[in-house]
């Protein structure tokens, strides 16, 4: 978990710590990811291979067969990343700064999985969803994506317009005494 200054709102009243992160710089890249030349260019540029289906590695997440979500590394800016992507990928592509379109949350605690399991229609057991996995699904009625940052920490993203709703939803779902603590058994 990064330092406290990177959070705009924190709620520690529940069984799992819920924190809303301040603006996280990220870029969406749309292009045909099966193209070998493109894959090589992305690897050279980002220093990491294109993640496999539904995986996240080194801050690059697989969103769809033709879409990546790139967390802008510290020391760089979305503008610089987009310029680099535009210059290096020759195939038809689109790179957009989506930092302001997204809200990012951190869930920390041994039962972080249980909080998401209340609203997401997927298998969140440690066997089915581990570190390195990336899943786009719904949480309640909200379209979200999340991944395990560590065994007890989940990062979740959703649209920025739903930031407060999502925060309140998570805090409500994490209330003490409300988690079955089944998945970590």
């Amino acid at each position: 978990m990064s330092d406290l200054m990177s959070f705009s709102e924190i709620d520690g009243s529940g069984a799992v710590l819920i924190a809303a992160q301040r603006r996280v710089a990220m870029v969406t890249l749309k292009t045909d990811l099966s193209n070998k030349i493109t894959r090589a260019a992305i690897k050279k540029l980002l220093g990491t291979t294109v993640p496999a289906q539904r995986k996240i590695a080194n801050g690059v997440a697989w969103m769809a067969p033709d879409e990546l979500l790139i967390m802008v590394p510290e020391g760089s800016t979305p503008e610089a990343q987009i310029e680099q992507l535009n210059a290096n990928i020759k195939a038809p592509m689109l790179a957009v700064d989506v930092s302001d379109a997204r809200a990012v949350f951190t869930l920390k605690g041994n039962n972080a999985r249980e909080v998401l399991a209340k609203g997401a229609p997927i298998d969140l057991s440690a066997d089915a969803f581990a570190q390195g996995d990336f899943r786009r699904t719904r949480l309640g009625q909200v379209a979200v994506a999340f991944w395990m940052e560590a065994d007890d920490e989940i990062t979740l993203i959703c649209f920025a317009s739903l930031r407060q709703f999502m925060f309140d939803w998570l805090v409500n779902a994490a209330q003490k005494g409300s988690l079955p603590a089944y998945l970590n058994r």
Partner: peptide, 12 residues
């Protein structure tokens, strides 16, 4: 067929 994941109806 694109995500390769078996998901529940409400996700679709």
């Amino acid at each position: 067929p694109y995500c390769g994941v078996e998901a529940e109806e409400t996700e679709f």
